[in-house]
Design a protein around this nucleic acid. Structure first.
Lengths: 359, 359
DNA sequence: GAGAAATAGGAAAACGTTTTCCTACTTGGT
DNA sequence: ACCAAGTAGGAAAACGTTTTCCTATTTCTC
């Protein structure tokens, strides 16, 4: 046990109340006693036990961040944004991984509640069959039962719950723009859509955007051009191989994430399909690897760091309002801007600058 | 406030002592009361407030992990190993970044001590001038003053302190082997060493290995072939450009990390130096990007994930021993094995398998 | 200069647990 | 049947804070 407030008090010859008052800068302590206490604090190298304080004031200054996997750079970037903003606001970040298991996510939410974190940021985008999602939403709802009011902020996954904020980009629009870009700029006529699982919220949004882009540009929507994959590069790789075997024609591919796009790239290389001359490829997310793979990958840039930072900023804001006794602030969906970045997979000789060298 | 032990007790018609005993599986509670209590717990959905418990038993179940930056994949991989093992042992991981500032690291150590984390894992390898390092070591020492006994484990940075464990590879040997490989297998005669800052512990170890390899293979050690850089790709890039300008000869480059090696690759491309025909290049760390860059980069594989996992495992072990009342366990340095991985930057047409596709 | 108002600061309650210390009630051995 | 030895379970202390409540002193106000 390190030195406690009691020791400081006796050393300064005052009561512990007074020490506490000095620490917290409360009123009603004379300058004389104040310096005495400060001296004692300095001498003993005292710093308040934040557990005890937490117990008293019901605050831990910990924010739980739940992500699917630390090693996925998409989430790592988000985490970094969160971390930076957390520090700026005096919070610590506690991380946990779900590895895509919604059950795990439900468990973690419960766990962190019992750990009394001040807030939870969900950067995990859980999904699953209807029942699981229902159960999941229920578990979030519990956070808002009488008394317990733990703010939750989701990333890329607006939840229809008045107490859950969301930070996201407009995924439908992003997909729409990417596909429109393939049609108008690159003159693709026959575009494949390599998808993340259909039941995923983001998958649905992107599908809508894909479809709208075709329709508005007078191209037919063909169900067989839409392939459900599973996030991994390998699934993208296999999808293209299969389609090529069936001797179907295509001149553009829109992938729901960069990982699958990398697999697609690989498959094209093996099939001796020239990129971008024969087929243009768009990824999504603009993850680090997109810029170093060869040919480099055009993608939709998602401001990941900024999303994380904004989520944490909002969290701090909400927490402050709650502390100030204001009634729980209205739920918000905070929209960030995406951006299409062109690289070699859609435009020949569009080699990127040294940008990625500046780590 | 969620439901407390008091409510459970009154609902079950017992005292809070009994509830506590049931929760903790202590002796002296009859089967009858036990089921009553369990029923009440289930009904109220009670789970113990871990802050209050922490205050009583002086344990938070939080482990602080201090790294330089979350976005550096080297540390991310470590973090993932830590996270997995932490979960397996019932600990939560609190992350913070130093961004290479030793002052920040000192601050964080103090901060986490006041937060009562159960242990600290330093994956940050602080360094700086003598005074700073001294101050740094002092701050670690404080953790072992009477009473406060917070175990610390460092990664890649053995500290000469009887209470600080370390998990690392043999960096001198790794550098020695890499350079020996360049000499014996690739037949390099004139090798540059692109270094991280000299004052860094790891830099010194690698320098020693570099030097020993030259000496044991009968090659001269030339001071001007050793260039101090600063971790970044750009610094590696500039170093090679400068040497080329001076029209100095070289046929191999050993880089202290992969980032700088990527910059070196870029510089060679611009100088129209063929890799590996004209110059062979070795990186260090085997970070993800090494396998996707083109030409792919030979490197020293460091078992990052395993290092993290082992560190956390050791931490759990130490914590358990302390809890069991055994005197603080002897300090240990845990050594893991590195491995040289050959890719295109040293061996032509050595394209790697699909390995990196399987995210 | 007397009463009201403000200020300083101590004692103690409270936060939600775990654990020690009792007391009362079983057992079991003789 | 009686006493020692367990066992079950409640009351209360303790963990280190913050904060409320109270008292004593000082400072105004007319």
């Amino acid at each position: 046990m390190s030195v406690s407030i009691k020791e400081v008090a006796s050393r300064a010859g005052v009561s512990i109340s007074t020490v506490s008052r000095v620490i917290n800068g409360s009123k009603n302590v004379s300058p004389l006693l104040k310096v005495k206490v400060e001296k004692a604090i300095a001498e003993t190298n005292y710093s308040a036990n934040s557990i005890a304080r937490g117990l008293k004031i019901s605050k831990t200054n910990n924010i739980a961040v739940i992500i699917t996997a630390i090693s996925r750079t998409f989430f790592t970037d988000i985490l970094e944004g969160i971390s930076k903003e957390a520090e700026a606001n005096g919070y610590s970040v506690v991380v946990a991984e779900t590895h895509d298991s919604i059950e795990k996510e439900i468990y973690l939410v419960d766990y962190f509640v019992s750990q009394w974190v001040d807030g939870i940021i969900l950067a995990s985008s859980a999904y699953g069959d209807g029942l699981k999602v229902r159960k999941y939403l229920d578990s979030l709802d519990k956070l808002n039962k009488k008394g317990t009011r733990i703010p939750v902020i989701t990333l890329e996954y607006p939840i229809n719950n008045k107490n859950v904020d969301a930070v996201t980009i407009d995924n439908e629009k992003a997909a729409y723009e990417a596909v429109t870009y393939l049609i108008r700029q690159i003159h693709c006529k026959n575009i494949l859509h390599i998808c993340i699982p259909f039941e995923h919220y983001l998958g649905q949004k992107r599908m809508e955007g894909f479809r709208r882009a075709l329709e508005e540009n007078g191209l037919p929507f063909l169900q067989e051009n839409v392939v459900e994959c599973d996030y991994t590069s390998y699934s993208g790789y296999k999808a293209v191989k299969k389609i090529a075997e069936e001797r179907r024609d295509f001149d553009g591919i829109f992938c729901d994430n960069d990982q699958m796009a990398v697999g697609v790239l690989k498959a094209c290389e093996e099939l001796q399909i020239r990129i971008p001359e024969d087929v243009a490829i768009m990824g999504n997310d603009d993850v680090f690897v997109a810029s170093v793979v060869s040919p480099s990958l055009s993608s939709i840039h998602v401001p990941k760091y900024e999303m994380g930072a904004l989520a944490m900023k909002r969290m701090a804001e909400v927490l402050e309002m709650i502390e100030a006794g204001k009634k729980c602030p209205k739920r918000k969906v905070l929209l960030l801007q995406h951006e299409i970045v062109e690289r070699e997979s859609t435009v020949k000789d569009n080699r990127e600058s040294l940008q990625y060298l500046f780590w």
